[in-house]
Design a protein around this nucleic acid. Structure first.
Lengths: 233, 233
DNA sequence: GAGTGGTCTAGACCACATG
DNA sequence: ATGTGGTCTAGACCACTCT
């Protein structure tokens, strides 16, 4: 007559989710207190808590300290994307990776770049343009700004050996990140380097990183036509 | 001489992250066992576990059951995006939302749609095209397929009152989700309805949902030029 | 086989938000 | 002031995976 095994938090999560899917708990409804659910299902409160943590993460429920747990009335679609180093991305597709350094200059940051970093005074930064290739065909064109002040050693790195992308990822972890996706028409450099007609629709990833409040790097990566980003899960 | 307060898991997380940032734990390194870290910092193992859960989620470390915890050698950029109901998205920008039903037909699923759902036999589905507007200007054009078999009641819904987007979100939670982003050139319908020249670069969100293995809906949402998606955090 | 992270429990206290 | 989720502890056992 006893339960065969103890309940795991995934069991609890699945049960609660099932109730939400079946509208036993309808959108906007308040769920019972964790403790009551625990008692009903026969597990510890922390197990329910762990389950709720997951459902809350996914965006299915909303929890507040005294307000209790509610089924979200306007659920959002929440998706997580992993953006690997370009080398890995190419290699995992089974292609040969290579990279061309296009230019390497030191410039004062123009206004749009200052805006990305959220700084109010211009700074001298290293600007590196590079083209990533898969099987010798253009894959991603990147235009990157790197703060020199916080890492003077960057000036000695030979980016023809290791791309700026890789060097930074291996040598400069960040503590804050901003990522944006958009679309743009190929023109000028992007069209030329990606070897695509002017006007092609290109997928753009813009990434900016900081350590604390200190700028590290910002990059606009423009992918060749056909690029698609798929969510994990 | 005593600690003022107990360590919280965020303190532990910040401490570990600081060590990684300072390369005290370098990329690829193996970290001490949770229990050793707990002892060193003077907290319970589960507190360290909670901290590690967070770092692992972010993608800074990788944990394996007997292998221990390692600093990721090839860190990935992990970003989470919330895609709200279009109505909310528009309203949160401070604009007036409206929606036009363009067409509503029942069709056999063609191959590309079957592929999205992962089904091998065609099914009859409801196909709904609609245009979302912000301040009476085109915002998102969506082309949606809805499985009729699992929700015949959908046939009675008046989509001129409530968009298919909203009806589904409010009435049909899902258990599995696939999201992809890409870019495409405006052409034909997308150009016409979004009131943009043929060839404009448009941002495309493709979303497919299931309950278990059962298809619910798939939608291709094409955003007007200038659309940008920003990560949470 | 053995080592390490993953989970569960029971109990205590804290912190936040609401009435 | 009070209720509810959030966290911490200590200890036990489980499950994966490497050797």
């Amino acid at each position: 007559m006893n339960e065969q095994t103890r309940l795991s938090w995934t069991d609890v999560r699945d049960e609660i989710r099932a109730r939400i899917l079946s509208r036993a708990y309808a959108p906007g409804d308040k769920l019972p207190r964790d403790e009551d659910i625990a008692q009903e299902l026969g597990c510890a409160r922390s197990t329910v808590h762990r389950a709720m943590q997951d459902l809350s993460q996914i965006g299915l429920v909303e929890r507040k300290r005294k307000g209790g747990t509610h089924v979200r009335a306007d659920p959002v679609t929440r998706a997580t994307f992993d953006i690997p180093i370009t080398r890995r991305e190419v290699e995992q597709r089974g292609s040969i990776y290579s990279c061309q350094l296009i230019s390497r200059t030191v410039e004062q940051t123009p206004l749009p770049i200052m805006a990305r970093f959220g700084i109010t005074h211009p700074a001298e930064m290293l600007r590196v343009k590079a083209l990533h290739l898969a099987d010798n065909r253009p894959y991603i064109f990147e235009d990157r700004w790197i703060d020199v002040g916080s890492m003077p050693e960057i000036l000695d790195v030979d980016f023809s050996l290791e791309s700026a992308n890789e060097w930074l990822v291996h040598n400069k972890p960040y503590s804050r990140l901003d990522v944006r996706f958009s679309a743009m028409n190929a023109e000028g450099e992007s069209a030329r380097y990606l070897d695509t007609p002017t006007g092609s629709a290109l997928f753009v990833i813009e990434r900016t990183t900081w350590i604390g409040a200190e700028p590290i790097t910002t990059v606009q990566a423009v992918a060749a036509p056909g690029y698609q980003l798929v969510a994990q899960n």
